[in-house]
Simulated assay, not measured.
Amino acid sequence: MAGVAVQHDASRVEALERPLTHGRSGTLWKASKLCSAASLVLGVWPGQRKWMKVAGALLGTAGAVLTRFAVFHAGKASASDPQATFQPQRQGLGAAEVTGHERASDGKPFSFPLPVLR
């Protein structure tokens, strides 16, 4: 499930995981996991009836919609927290590695350390 991958990736840094566990986005995230799990249970339940199929489909759709809004609100919360941006960069998470290349995509040679624009 993609939600597990998102949760695992965000859990590497506490500042990134916080929006998925607290506040509005945390509530939406937990509700999305609950709806998705209930949809899965109804989907594999033996001797399905029509109402079970419909309920499972509705719960699966609700889980997907809740996941979308949970990630949206978590992104907004994360963007307003400077630690969520700078802490992963300082830990080297998400940094692009440039190895074996002598020129940038614009054809200019690399110069290290890269200049800091102020």
Rank of each mutant, 00 (worst) to 15 (best):
residue 3 G to E: 10
residue 5 A to Q: 04
residue 9 D to M: 07
residue 10 A to P: 10
residue 11 S to R: 09
residue 11 S to D: 15
residue 14 E to Q: 06
residue 14 E to M: 03
residue 15 A to V: 15
residue 15 A to K: 02
residue 17 E to N: 12
residue 20 L to I: 13
residue 22 H to Y: 15
residue 25 S to N: 00
residue 26 G to P: 13
residue 28 L to N: 04
residue 33 K to F: 08
residue 34 L to Y: 15
residue 34 L to G: 02
residue 37 A to E: 02
residue 40 L to H: 13
residue 40 L to V: 05
residue 42 L to P: 11
residue 42 L to H: 07
residue 43 G to L: 02
residue 44 V to D: 12
residue 45 W to G: 00
residue 50 K to L: 09
residue 50 K to V: 07
residue 52 M to Y: 04
residue 53 K to S: 09
residue 53 K to N: 15
residue 54 V to S: 05
residue 59 L to E: 02
residue 60 G to C: 06
residue 61 T to S: 14
residue 64 A to H: 06
residue 64 A to C: 09
residue 64 A to D: 14
residue 66 L to Q: 04
residue 67 T to M: 10
residue 71 V to E: 00
residue 72 F to L: 12
residue 77 A to I: 00
residue 77 A to R: 08
residue 78 S to V: 06
residue 79 A to S: 02
residue 79 A to E: 15
residue 80 S to D: 13
residue 82 P to V: 13
residue 83 Q to G: 02
residue 86 F to M: 02
residue 86 F to P: 00
residue 86 F to I: 13
residue 89 Q to H: 01
residue 90 R to A: 13
residue 91 Q to L: 09
residue 93 L to R: 09
residue 96 A to Q: 03
residue 97 E to C: 09
residue 100 G to D: 14
residue 101 H to M: 05
residue 108 K to F: 14
residue 109 P to H: 00
residue 115 P to T: 12
